[in-house]
Nucleic acid binder design. Sequence first.
DNA 1: TTTTAACACGAAAACGTTTTCGTGACATAT
DNA 2: ATATGTCACGAAAACGTTTTCGTGTTAAAA
Lengths: 348, 348
Amino acid sequence: MKRKITLKQIARELEVSISTVSKALRNSAEISEDTKQKVQAFAKLYNYRPNNIALSLKNRKTNTIGIIIPEIVHHFFSKVIRGVELVANKRGYNVIVGLSNESFSKEVINMEMLANGSIDGFILSISKETQQLQDYHHFNETMSQGMPIVMFDRVVSDMNCDKVIVDDLNGAKNAVEKLLRNGCKSIALITTKDYVSVGKLRTQGYLEALEKHQIQPKADLILKIDDTLDYETRLDALENEIKQLFKANNGIDGVFAVNELYALSAMKVARKLGLNIPEDVQVIGFTDGVLSKHSTPSLTTVSQHAQQMGEKAADLLINKLENNIETEEEYFQTVIIATELIERESTK
Amino acid sequence: MKRKITLKQIARELEVSISTVSKALRNSAEISEDTKQKVQAFAKLYNYRPNNIALSLKNRKTNTIGIIIPEIVHHFFSKVIRGVELVANKRGYNVIVGLSNESFSKEVINMEMLANGSIDGFILSISKETQQLQDYHHFNETMSQGMPIVMFDRVVSDMNCDKVIVDDLNGAKNAVEKLLRNGCKSIALITTKDYVSVGKLRTQGYLEALEKHQIQPKADLILKIDDTLDYETRLDALENEIKQLFKANNGIDGVFAVNELYALSAMKVARKLGLNIPEDVQVIGFTDGVLSKHSTPSLTTVSQHAQQMGEKAADLLINKLENNIETEEEYFQTVIIATELIERESTK
DNA sequence: TTTTAACACGAAAACGTTTTCGTGACATAT
DNA sequence: ATATGTCACGAAAACGTTTTCGTGTTAAAA
């Protein structure tokens, strides 16, 4: 169980100074060919690798980025991570993951744990609780210390940082228009309470689509789910609420849901009520996850290109980290990732 | 954009030495009450936090663990990460994630990137390619440098390290026995090629169940999928192979599949062939993911308790890291996580 | 022979901590 | 008055690097 070898040990062994070893390994012109060869051979033999921590301390740069997300057992977020990891690795960075579990305090703690030198910058999507509390002091403090943040998906719009967001509004609008073009006359919306920023935007897209086609929205057709309930109780409650929605409104022939699960539940309820999909009711969901693809019938859905979002966020962050041009004029951009409607069996 | 404050700056500001500041903050008895108060007040005012990198270098301990998995967009693995993160955080550790993407070289590169001081130990599940090549030099090298490894799920059995595995054999055996007890006479197995260790074990469980009930296994009933194909082509090819399986064997009344997707595909194919589930064919899958829960009919499945695996792996690793009792007698354990059969609609 | 230049290397500082040890200023005991 | 002890603090080393600057040796130029 030999420990990793250091410059000091090589120096002692070869009876030269640490500086010489360091320079020899970096092929400095200062060092004679003889010495270089000797040192390099020895280093290779003992599989020398510079200690990352020492380098980080010296360079005041860890080459690590922190990503904080509300939940990892979730296709959207894990795809984002995949994207982040992909470009981070390609550009020589590591990725350290923190989970807020949708809790404000865990988000704060996680950020504090990482902000003390462990990472060079953050990529994050804020927790629901933070969205409710609207307490953003931890973001401000982090940024005021010179640590850049890139927010994605769930962002706080009036914060001075780079952002990567989905075009939720137009994604939803297009989806609803698709239903309208397909002949739907009475389209229900299943969404979340308004404090969830993306739910709000998708709701707005629904409304704009109706307005564009001169259809008066009916409040009865809009179901706002309280998604703070936990998973188990949620499924039953959810299906119940949807059933009420169908029963209260005769002739629903289209459903737009702001996520996969709501859409699937809608399909399940509709079938139980004797309705056929897509003949009687057409359904479109949001988020191209594994459920949409493998449900029966498979679900037409609005894809967010999650991996692309992660890649973009990582690129933005690393660009900022490496452009230490310090253009005192801080310049922040918001990248909007276009959505794509993936048509499957749940629409005509 | 003020940088984070350091001991040195506090010392200069208060006109004391760095040592004094450090001791004052740690409430050393060496320092007078007056000085302590002054220093602590100042530190709080400027929100001083010790630099993690400096601490890591000094202590030769990063309090960070690396987890390397083949794929993150995968319920099983993301649940494991959640478990790891949970106990890691609770015990004061961070988690840094590397993805091998099922590739041997990426696995090696990732490990090398992290092994140079960035982390204290590894938790990992080996890539399929590594399983095929059976090249484990990177694991051996890492361990010979005194960096502990905990393997989970896909492990290499004759390696000297802690392991956390699923009881694949008995999980499969129980599932198949369940089908037998439910009256199935002709049970098909849909599995992977044998180099995937877990596929092999689950296959063995299938065989043992049959043997126990004195049923002669029929080679025709066993379908071994080559899962190196990519996802898109796989779906078609998969359903095709399963269709052949059904057509070549009249009277299949039970299916055991080694993962969710195979099970779902089997259900889909069966339905297309006019068979009802579970009346005509009963189906059981492996891995309790989101698909099993939300498919129609919902899928009876063998749960692996992925999160628990992650928690256990993290505990094992951190125990090893903190028990520097250096009981020269290295002691490695293999923890077996029991499976659980979750009964849903696809079985009677 | 003396001056200059090139060469090859080492000493030391720096990154931000913690910790061991030393030391000057007092107060107390002899 | 001297010896001893306590108190409060500082100097310095250490973790493992990189880099700047200095310096001794030798060879070439004057």
